[in-house]
């Protein structure tokens, strides 16, 4: 290369990826609306994952053959940074919904504030958060809510610890101590798996012992959409870190040049920060 910028050759992954995503979405839609179509959804999902695998394989290959220069590296950085910003805004929508409901809608329905006259429609409703008795008696609220100081606290500690272990792994990589890096990274993945399992236990408890369900009024709705999408992100993050572990094992990444690894760290820290927000606003307050 004569110092020029690397423009990749034609690639079949973009078009295959979009078709796969389309198939997955159509399958999901058919599943939701007509309660069939699961195979299409699963095939689509498998194809999306496969395409992503091949796509990243190409990128890794190009990167390992030294086709990327510092400018390309910066492009990846900007790209990943803004992608995470878009994820922040995705969660912002759910947090915004939570704050709106708690600050405005629930008090109004209970007779307080600028639109408190709405309580005429719901004479029996008492505004409180969490909403255990939704305005209409046809909606069954949760029986009780989870204490933040049990499993959620454990999960908070797990995620915060995992951020630290990941940082240690990153520092080790920068020093070229690959074995240390591998061990700490493996620890991080393990912590991620623990988090997911504990979250699973918590969901089981919520559904079976606390009556917190998706149908349980606005509390159930906000609880599950926030923790659920966060959980999905933890799962994705764990998968990313697992692939990083495999790559470390295979001897990828240079001491001073390993953006793939860094990007997964960014992502993991982002997931961590979201959890802290969740812990404070969904569980504690």
């Amino acid at each position: 290369m004569s110092g020029g910028y690397y423009v990749p050759a034609t690639s079949r992954w973009p078009i295959l990826g979009s078709l796969a995503l389309g198939a997955m979405m159509v399958g999901t839609g058919i599943k939701l609306v007509y309660d069939t179509g699961t195979p299409l959804m699963l095939i689509g999902m498998a194809c999306v994952i496969t395409v992503m695998g091949f796509w990243f394989r190409d990128v890794i290959h190009e990167s390992m053959s030294g086709l990327y220069d510092a400018q390309m590296d910066r492009s990846f950085r900007w790209g990943m940074g803004w992608f995470i910003f878009s994820e922040v805004m995705f969660f912002a929508a759910f947090f915004g919904a939570l704050f709106y409901v708690r600050t405005f809608a629930i008090p109004w329905l209970g007779g307080e504030g600028a639109k408190g006259v709405s309580a005429l429609l719901w004479p029996d409703f008492v505004a409180q958060w969490p909403v255990l008795n939704p305005p209409d008696s046809s909606v069954a609220g949760p029986d009780s809510v989870l204490s933040p100081w049990q499993l959620p606290l454990v999960n908070t500690l797990i995620l915060v610890t995992s951020s630290i272990t990941l940082t240690v792994a990153h520092e080790a990589l920068k020093l070229g101590e690959r074995k240390t890096c591998r061990n700490w990274l493996a620890g991080t993945v393990l912590l991620g798996c623990c988090f997911i399992m504990i979250q699973g236990v918590e969901y089981y408890e919520a559904y079976n012992h606390y009556g917190i369900t998706l149908e349980a009024g606005i509390f159930g709705a906000t609880f599950f959409i926030l923790t659920g999408f966060h959980g999905v992100h933890v799962i994705i993050g764990t998968l990313i870190l697992t692939s990083m572990l495999i790559r470390i094992h295979k001897g990828h990444f240079a001491q001073d040049h390993h953006f793939g690894f860094e990007a997964s760290c960014w992502y993991w820290h982002f997931v961590d920060v979201v959890w802290v927000g969740l812990f404070i606003f969904v569980y504690v307050f």
């Binding site: 329905l109 006259v117 709405s118």
Partner: peptide, 12 residues
């Protein structure tokens, strides 16, 4: 007077 009528809420 143009005012939305919102199900479950009352506007004045």
């Amino acid at each position: 007077v143009k005012q939305d009528t919102i199900p479950g809420f009352i506007n004045e």
